[in-house]
Design a protein around this nucleic acid. Structure first.
Lengths: 216, 216
DNA sequence: CCATCTTGACATGACCCCCTGTCAAAATGC
DNA sequence: GCATTTTGACAGGGGGTCATGTCAAGATGG
């Protein structure tokens, strides 16, 4: 039994189990959170607004999340999972050429963030501020590791060692974030392929060891 | 006569003119805003808190700013002006070597943000959130342009043509912002010189045309 | 010295969000 | 059919900021 006399859902309702109903409401709340956070911004993504948009009342908010921040974190985590998904899938489905693999993964990433601008805004902009900043950093580290692993797989011992790989991951994602946002707001006359080329070029230029010794 | 019966200051008081007094109060408010925003964060940088710290009452807040956001924007703009100032000064005072010039400008930038941690926090962390995000983006575009201009001055026709130079400027500023955000929050075990080296290396690696044709 | 301007301290209501609680209607299980 | 569970609508206090107003004391100019 929960705090305010709301007995934990037990029996079926409209043909669905209690757990399924709860999970469904959780998804509704996450959808509403993504919608508000990704199109109105953090300020408007208030608890009551999210509940209203989800068509639920606050009781079901507390059923799934302790605070507002917990929901926002979950929204970001769901996006991170999607990014992981499409990127790894693109890597697996592209052929063995390192450049082609990098472009496939970056292209899948960019497509995800631009096909649904709300996802792009949350992933690149809202996540940079409180209360998501800390998690964003963790995720960047994780993706940096993933990139480093891939770079090592692609480039072998030409790949950079830590912490240089981590630094480069941060520089790449930070730059991509600004670039994507400028693009999403129509400030750059670029095509999708231009973005991919640019990002892939920066990745290639910084992901492996530079030969700094010119020929004598 | 302003809204609430506060007659516009007219005559001298304590030996200073009305305009001087108003400007002085504006500076006090900006200082208080920087102090709170840069050490307590956006949530604590409330109107009443700012007025209290400035030793003024709300009346003088509205005398200088319409909303809280207007003051916060002014705080950020003042910092942006300082950044412009120290960077251009460093460029002018360093010798002609492109690498040395880049390192001097980047070093001056980093020093400004770290000598006063409040400035660093506002410029890199708080500016990423509402209500400063939009202005931050404008400023990054502006500094990206500045970098592109400098690259052309340093590298001549070896520099990249538009819009590639703008893209690279944006990638560099965005990446550097991300790197500094992580560094300012203690998430990266780096020294000042490491940051300068990294940023300068990225600038050098992307600011000029790459020779993509290997020898036959 | 005195009317007037300036300043600081404080009071007040409106508004919004969080959080908890109530109540009735709908749906269920037996 | 009936007691019980689930749901939706809504009410209301607590806390905080914003925005506006009042009042008295200090400073000024004539």
């Amino acid at each position: 039994m929960s705090r305010w006399g709301m007995a934990m859902s037990q029996r079926n309702y409209r043909g669905v189990s209690a757990d399924q109903r709860r999970d469904r409401r959780r998804e509704q709340l996450l959808d509403a959170g993504l919608d508000l956070l990704g199109s109105q911004g953090w300020r408007q993504a208030t608890m009551t607004a999210i509940c209203t948009r989800a068509g639920l009342t606050e009781r079901y908010f507390y059923e799934n999340f302790a605070h507002r921040d917990e929901l926002l974190l979950a929204v970001l985590d769901r996006i991170a999972a999607q990014i992981r998904d499409v990127a790894l899938r693109a890597l697996a489905e592209s052929d063995g050429d390192p450049q082609a693999k990098a472009e496939a993964a970056i292209g899948a990433f960019i497509d995800l963030l631009t096909n649904d601008p709300r996802i792009g805004r949350v992933a690149m902009l809202e996540s940079a501020a409180e209360p998501l900043r800390a998690r964003r950093h963790e995720l960047l580290l994780e993706f940096g590791q993933l990139i480093a692993t891939q770079a090592r797989a692609l480039y072998g011992n030409e790949a950079l060692p830590p912490p240089q790989d981590q630094i480069n991951g941060l520089m790449l994602t930070g730059g991509l974030a600004e670039l994507l946002m400028a693009w999403l707001t129509g400030e750059l006359p670029l095509q999708r392929q231009d973005l991919i080329d640019t990002a892939a070029a920066h990745f290639a230029a910084t992901a492996r060891r530079h030969d700094t010794s010119p020929p004598p």
